[in-house]
Design a protein around this nucleic acid. Structure first.
Length: 288
DNA sequence: GGACAGGGTTACG
DNA sequence: CGTAACCCTGTC
């Protein structure tokens, strides 16, 4: 594989990004991380063993990464995908002294980025996510990709891209139920794919809408409620002020803030802190 | 191997 | 506005 070296100055932790629960098809094999989006595949690994993860004082210079793509593809596809135009280090540094939970959470989640993912993939993935845990979501989304996605090849390794709306719109609901194990979500997925394929949902035009209207627009899809719509806004359209409230975040609000909303004060970065809090809550569970 | 919860949403009362 | 039902998978 032809590779080149790129440098990243800001927070950037591949493992945490994979685990952060926004993307369900990223993977790690033999030290290489694989990401997929919009017909592109990226293999990336830290150049030095520790990478940024092992930099406790945050004063180190840029971290080096080996990547499979050329410079143009990095700039056009992957830098926006990883939201590299945003300074997460400054955002973390601005947490007030009084918010100890968020100081711990953002420190623990340092390196996470809010990915700018494909809107169709994000919509389908988060419809599937309801009442599932992360391993189960990965399984279901992977099944869709392996059955209906176009294959791409890098050397002798192949991967399946996320399927096109037109393809998913023509799959019988029965097949979603029985072969893809989607259960009651089967009609939701079919409906969403059909609305996108037929242009009733315009994923391009949606990007022009303000946050509230964008969320309402996606709730027109059956099976998309406020939580999933907010996930789409945050993870596909970069609306970092939007906070999806799931059971984990709900628990944090109840147990750490007496039922109050700890995110509101962070305004346009509230969604980023939501992601730190989500990661931290999951991480704590793992350590119990 | 059974119980329980899991990145919710819809359709009822 | 609260609540049951929805289908299936991980995890203890």
């Amino acid at each position: 594989m032809n590779t080149r070296i790129i440098y990243i100055e800001d927070d950037f932790d591949l493992k945490k990004i994979c685990e952060s629960g926004q993307c369900f098809r990223a993977s790690e094999e033999g030290g290489w991380f694989r990401f997929l989006t919009r017909g592109h595949i990226l293999w990336i690994r830290p150049r030095d063993d520790a990478g940024r993860c092992g930099d406790p004082d945050e004063t180190g210079g840029p971290a080096a990464f080996e990547v499979s793509c050329d410079g143009a593809e990095w700039d056009e596809i992957w830098a926006p995908y990883f939201d590299l135009g945003r300074d997460y280090r400054s955002i973390r540094a601005a947490v007030p002294e009084d918010d100890m939970f968020m100081r711990r959470a953002s420190s623990c989640g340092r390196g996470i980025r809010i990915l700018r993912q494909d809107p169709f993939e994000t919509t389908i993935s988060f419809i599937i996510s309801q009442r599932k845990n992360i391993p189960a979501i990965r399984q279901a989304v992977g099944l869709l990709a392996s059955r209906y996605g176009r294959k791409v090849r890098t050397g002798d390794v192949t991967a399946e891209l996320f399927p096109e709306p037109e393809v998913l719109a023509r799959v019988p609901e029965k097949e979603y139920r029985e072969a893809c194990r989607l259960g009651y979500r089967a009609p939701y997925v079919l409906c969403a794919a059909q609305m996108v394929a037929q242009g009733q949902i315009d994923l391009e035009a949606a990007s022009e809408l303000p946050d509230g209207e964008l969320i309402a627009y996606f709730q027109r899809i059956r099976g998309v409620g406020v939580k999933v719509a907010r996930c789409i806004a945050l993870f596909a359209y970069g609306r970092t002020g939007v906070v999806p409230v799931d059971t984990w975040i709900g628990r944090v609000m109840k147990e750490q803030y007496g039922g109050g909303d700890p995110f509101r004060r962070y305004r346009e970065n509230a969604g980023i802190f939501q992601q730190y809090a989500f990661y931290y809550a999951q991480h704590e569970r793992g350590l119990r």
